[in-house]
Design a protein around this nucleic acid. Structure first.
Lengths: 223, 223
DNA sequence: TCGAAGAGTGATATAAAGGTAACACAGTCA
DNA sequence: TGACTGTGTTACCTTTATATCACTCTTCGA
């Protein structure tokens, strides 16, 4: 089951989208704290994100840029200011689509489906990332390798998702910190180290030695 | 270099797109045989496909469905018939986006780039410098040559970036000193020598002998 | 209410990177 | 050629980044 997160200050629209998306069998979270978007994003870890541009406190462009620092999650902008400049700006910030308000709900849903399909592979109905024969199901947070199931904690799962979403590339410790604990609560840097360590132990025990590599002075990598 | 294929019977549009896409460093094929779309598709094997809906012989929906039987290539529809029903239909056929005619060329290009990025991984966009077949990934400090990966330390990376950005020109030791240690802390001049030495050893070991040359009394050069 | 699991903290251990000094070697010029 | 200066090489030491371990605190359910 895919998770959809919507950041939209018009409660009417947010509600309508939520209702319709639920009908499409999507789990929906409508953000209401427009200062804590990053925290909610990290918590909910959606498979797709709908972003309004005009928001209280910070605008959609800001959140898009922030989120793109740590995640490749598909992003669709929803905005009444749908002139060419805004569209181009959004795309350059890493957005995947741009829908003008008011929009037809069926069109939105069709685009959401298309983007989910594009991102999480055509055939599979489940968002699964594979590497070295290990299958990470990002929907329910299970890792399967060699027929055995490795159970991960929240923290371990988030770390692994972030690394596997970016496999082949180094993910900085800073990014992981942001993704796990969003700046409001000050968490020791070492806590990340410890959590990576715990994750590695589980992977090792399952026969996945060296699954997570260290790039000294930079971060971690799965490759 | 990505290949873009456009299926469009208005030669003016096709040409304009081809021109603009070339400027974006895309290889372009404009289909002219509207019965042999599949053959041309197979021949050219594009990374992305732009499809008009109203075409001679068969319409864009037909080709989209045909192509989707064998390929997951990203498809963007271009059409003047951009009502909701058409959009939904296109998306359900496996399209990735739908752009109404007439369209702004910059918007089209932004969407093409976004879709290529989404489909062929975000890696494109990471600043990479090339020389003598060696690729320097400035984001995570790795140098790839002959299939093997050389990991560099912070200092080594900075030196190499500075030299490769100025390839063909001699970079003074003074300038490297400035770039590595920002004047506030007084660092021995020899430290630079040592770091260059360490970098050279890694390059030599990877088969890149003489990658960094010395200009006696001036500085270092990559050429 | 007890115990197990998850999560954060601090202390300490280890490994990697960076800096320094001593000396060797190479270009330059009288 | 020999003195001088710039650069290369090596060994050693300091600093910093990461790993590991032991402990605490919280939550949650039996």
């Amino acid at each position: 089951m895919y998770r959809l997160m919507i950041v939209e200050d018009d409660a009417g629209i947010a509600e309508a989208v939520a209702e319709r998306a639920s009908a499409w069998n999507l789990e929906v979270r409508a953000v209401t704290d427009f200062r804590g978007v990053l925290r909610e994003f990290a918590e909910f870890s959606p498979h797709i994100l709908l972003l309004d541009i005009s928001l209280p406190f910070f605008d959609g462009y800001y959140w898009c840029a922030e989120i793109r620092r740590a995640s490749k999650v598909p992003i669709i902008f929803l905005s009444s200011a749908a002139d060419n400049m805004n569209i181009i700006m959004a795309m350059n910030l890493g957005a995947d689509d741009f829908i003008a308000k008011p929009f037809d709900m069926s069109v939105l849903m069709a685009k959401v489906q298309a983007l989910l399909r594009r991102t999480y592979d055509f055939a599979a109905g489940v968002p699964v990332i594979e590497h070295r024969g290990a299958l990470l199901n990002t929907a329910d947070g299970t890792l399967v390798f060699n027929g055995e199931q490795i159970s991960l904690t929240q923290n371990e799962l988030r770390i692994l998702i972030c690394l596997m979403e970016n496999k082949g590339r180094t993910v900085s410790r800073e990014r992981l910190m942001e993704r796990l604990w969003n700046t409001d609560s000050f968490v020791d840097e070492n806590t990340l180290t410890v959590n990576v360590n715990r994750l590695r132990k589980k992977l090792d025990a399952a026969g996945l030695e060296g699954f997570i590599g260290t790039k000294f002075g930079v971060g971690y990598i799965v490759e």
